[in-house]
Amino acid sequence: MTVVTIEDLEPGSPDAGVPAHFGDPMREQRLLETGVGLVDRSNRAVIAVPGVERASWLHTLTTQHLSGLSAGEGSELLVLSPNGHIEQHALIAEDGTTAWLDTEPGAGAGLLRYLEMMRFFTQVEPRDASAEMAVLSLVGPGAAELFPDLAEPRVGAVPGAKFAAGSVPAQATSRYAVRAFEGGLARRVPLGVDLLVPRSDAPAVTERLGVARAGLWAYEAIRVARRLPRLGWETDHRTLPAEAGFLAAGVHLDKGCYRGQETVARVHHLGRPPRRLVLLHLDGVATDHPPAQGSAVELDGRAVGFVGTAVRHHELGMIALAVVKRNVADDARLSVGESAAAIDPE
């Protein structure tokens, strides 16, 4: 089997350490859209949070409603700056003794540092578990068939501006079913099923599953087409949750105080975040290479946003997630480098 790693193609990429593809990225994309493929995402950082007060503690520190988190449940959360800008994003899975947080490659140290800083006298013991546990992802409609006992992921609708207090259920806004699997956990998520398994057992687990492999390039193409944002790709140092598509799955808008809550509430109730996440179609006439992360999105020669993740999709062609100014019209004639770009209005 041909294995091409991320670092073979993108030296210095934050995603180094996992396969980019196995010889045919387009075939792998089709597999993830129509069947099921196994994607190695073991470069993700993992933080373990054991301790009897972990649920209530994480509830107070993050944007998510986690006070009632119990065994067999998962969700998503954000850590914000005092001004409401996104600093961390993680998925969480609870096994009854430990809350497991997995986040982007390279982001684990910052998340752990924040958690340790906020321990005080709370009965929790956060630690870096990246060397212990690895994330593998089963992606595609066939993933649910392999884990029929895991309920479909549920993500609540974002309430309208000036909603009545108490109208948002006192529970996590995204709820992902979790169960024990191969010494670790299986968590149902929007793209399939994430497996959090002992790192030393990951090769054996992969072999036992017997599922065709797909690389991270295929995973990213599916993610972009689904408009799912990624910390560090669709965010910059001043991104607010409402600007980059994190609000529904990661933020409970009617819970107690947490760092940055005032900004989140003000922006939501005014109903006008400064920027928004969009899917761009790029013409690919002048170049067949997707633009780099951070490339300027321009309107009449003026920068109005930036590209997050750009990919070549097997059906849609060259597409990208981008964050642009709120007042950029859906029919605006945009450009990214040498490529003309158009917003997909959903």
Rank of each mutant, 00 (worst) to 15 (best):
P274T: 09
M318D: 12
A109K: 09
D288V: 10
S81Y: 13
V139P: 02
S75R: 13
A151T: 13
W217T: 01
L136A: 06
G232H: 03
T235I: 05
A93F: 10
T103S: 12
A265E: 13
P14V: 02
G260F: 09
G68D: 12
T98G: 11
G156K: 11
A129G: 08
V158D: 08
T235E: 02
T34S: 12
M133Y: 10
G108Q: 11
A151S: 14
P19E: 11
A296G: 01
G68C: 06
A249D: 08
D194I: 05
V264I: 00
V168R: 13
S200T: 14
T263R: 14
A303N: 11
V324Y: 05
Q88R: 14
A20S: 14
A218L: 02
V158K: 10
E182K: 10
L277M: 05
S295N: 07
V264T: 08
D194H: 08
V46Q: 03
E94S: 14
Q293Y: 01
V36G: 11
H268W: 15
A296I: 03
G74S: 03
G271Q: 11
K255Y: 03
V52R: 15
G184E: 11
L61E: 12
E104A: 15
E28Y: 04
P169E: 12
T62L: 08
G317W: 02
L61I: 08
Q123N: 12
E234C: 02
R302V: 15
A151E: 11
